[in-house]
Design a protein around this nucleic acid. Structure first.
Lengths: 144, 144
DNA sequence: CGCTGATCGTCAGTATTACTGACGATTGGA
DNA sequence: TCCAATCGTCAGTAATACTGACGATCAGCG
């Protein structure tokens, strides 16, 4: 397996291909699972961050999600229009916005996260339960 | 772990987050690893497909890569301009182009694949050797 | 042989996403 | 009080991949 072979490489064995296609498939499952809640996976990510750290600035939310503050503007515009989050001026620092989940937002995170869990479970269906745990753990360690 | 808990979900434990960040990190490693060859990961994918199936039509290449034929046009334009692939009219079916690796293309796939292997290895560095194999195998099974 | 439907490569247009760079407003420290 | 830094915002840009259409070509059927 590791002696100096020179075999034709196979695209479907490449890590990039494997990640990309797994991510695409998960995205599709999420589209179906989250449709009843009117959000997509990216938006659920923002809601999850807010559920874990109530009342953050937009900049903080962006950092936690792993995007940047300019991307967050339009994202929060949409979530605000959907009634899932609220923006209020920070009382002590008027440069900031305090971003919080609305009541509707809290209910949506709860239910949509369950739907997302189901989507993940469906993606991982070909694996045994311990294999699923190992996969998650391996990915977690790769991402430090 | 599986009793009716209602804990705050953590974004970094979500599969979508894990895949996205692993893919981003790998993309970055690939950027560095492939720079000497003047190609990116997407282009290496095309070259790898061509190395495994010499003389395909553009449509076939696109299907194997998992994109569509309109995307492939510009991609092959670039690879042709770089002297890595050649396009010739199919002798029997003049609708098709026969796409083949040039000599330079063959050498590039060989060397760039090695560089890509190194990038993958670096991404998987936190895992033991059997764990790397398990991860690949799990991803392969997820993607059918 | 002549039609008809399908296929191939191409291109224009569009949508999505995320970035850079700049701006005004605001803050906090020298 | 002044200056550098921060925050949210927006315009512009770049990368990517899609849809829909087009002409050229092919294959099958009558």
């Amino acid at each position: 397996m590791s002696s100096g072979e020179e075999g034709t490489p196979e695209l479907s064995a490449r890590l990039g291909y494997l990640f990309k296609h797994a991510a695409l498939r998960l995205e599709e499952l999420h589209r179906e699972a989250l449709a009843p809640y009117g959000i997509d996976g990216r938006e659920l990510g923002v809601l999850i961050v807010l559920a874990g750290a109530e009342s953050s600035s937009q900049h903080e939310v962006a950092q936690r999600v792993g995007s940047d503050r300019t991307t967050m503007v339009a994202l929060l515009d949409v979530l605000e229009r959907k009634g899932l989050v609220s923006r209020q001026p920070h009382p002590q620092d008027r440069r900031r916005n305090v971003v919080e989940l609305t009541e509707h937002g809290r209910a949506t995170v709860r239910d949509a996260t369950r739907a997302s869990d189901a989507a993940e479970k469906e993606l991982l269906a070909p694996l045994s339960v311990p294999e699923r745990k190992d996969l998650r753990e391996a990915l977690r360690r790769i991402n430090e």
